[in-house]
Amino acid sequence: MIVAIAAGQQPRLTLDPRVPVETMTAYIVQVSMGDTPAGTLEYRTIFAVGATLFALTFVMNVLSQRLAQGKRGRL
């Protein structure tokens, strides 16, 4: 949520760390602030973005658990 303020709210594809960008979280929040009736394209899009975000964090969570378990096995 903090990044919604700090990173700006301008979607753009860049590797330059000095320009404002938009995170997935900020996008979902921004769309939700307006009126999004069920079934509209915007409504479906925030769920699609959310699913992508979940998939990404899920992979990282599984990886971290693998790492933690590997460590415990060796000790």
Partner: peptide, 21 residues
């Protein structure tokens, strides 16, 4: 147990979407 550990690491906005749905 594995599922709970995963849930603890999910971004909060996704819980918002879950609540909305």
């Amino acid at each position: 147990e594995v599922n709970i550990a995963n849930l603890a690491g999910v971004p909060s906005v996704i819980y918002g979407l879950l609540g909305l749905g």
